[in-house]
Design a protein around this nucleic acid. Structure first.
Lengths: 108, 108
DNA sequence: CCGAAGGTTCGAAGGTTCTCGTACCTGATC
DNA sequence: GATCAGGTACGAGAACCTTCGAACCTTCGG
């Protein structure tokens, strides 16, 4: 569990389980978010910038799931929070997974 | 829904949703089964040949989930049932997914 | 015919997930 | 200071998932 000022705690990548990752990616809302993050390279994005048709508290829940699955890192800036993929880290542990899922979500 | 003599019904591959697939693969027991099937190429295997530490009725449940996720085809031979991956079909719709997940489940 | 092996169906318990509303907090803006 | 936008924490409900046991079915081997 690393935690810097404003950084919400995330699990060590070594402790992240594949099953947890797949479960996190199974939800359409979360997959949509991850898809946008992948598309935007590893840039940081405001959490409020995702057009999810769900309540505020539900969004908070989904961010938590994504954090705990090791997919994203979240920074609290007082007003507004920001997310970014744990890109190099995640790919080191699960090479190819993010790209394949992003590819499959986009292509039809 | 195709169904031949002894073949349990499976969804059309076109109707299979990525979320459903990822959810199916999120479970450790089911992932273990899929992993073995991938390792054994696309050979058919007896359902009873998988060393799962769970009750009979629970196994039945998991086979159903895997069938409905479009991952396997199951044949009922009176005594004993048999499974095989829907390999060429599945890869056509979700290229790379099965290989990546199998790879990530094996390597550690 | 009888039993054992392999499976399905059913119902139920226990846990988890997704969802929401309400209350509350923090920074920026008026 | 009041207000607003963005978020979190908490509690609750509905739905779903995993699991099991009990009852039942079918086939094969004696």
């Amino acid at each position: 569990m690393s935690s810097m000022p404003g950084e919400l705690p995330v699990p060590e990548m070594a402790d992240v389980d594949l099953g947890t990752v797949l479960a996190a990616l199974a939800d359409p809302h979360r997959r949509a978010v991850v898809l946008e993050l992948v598309a935007g390279q590893d840039t940081e994005r405001a959490c409020s910038s995702f057009p999810l048709p769900i309540a505020k508290s539900t969004r908070t829940h989904h961010w938590k799931v994504l954090r705990q699955a090791g997919l994203v890192r979240q920074r609290d800036a007082g007003n507004g929070t920001f997310v970014r993929l744990r890109r190099p880290e995640f790919d080191a542990k699960f090479p190819g997974l993010l790209d394949v899922v992003a590819e499959l979500s986009t292509a039809r």
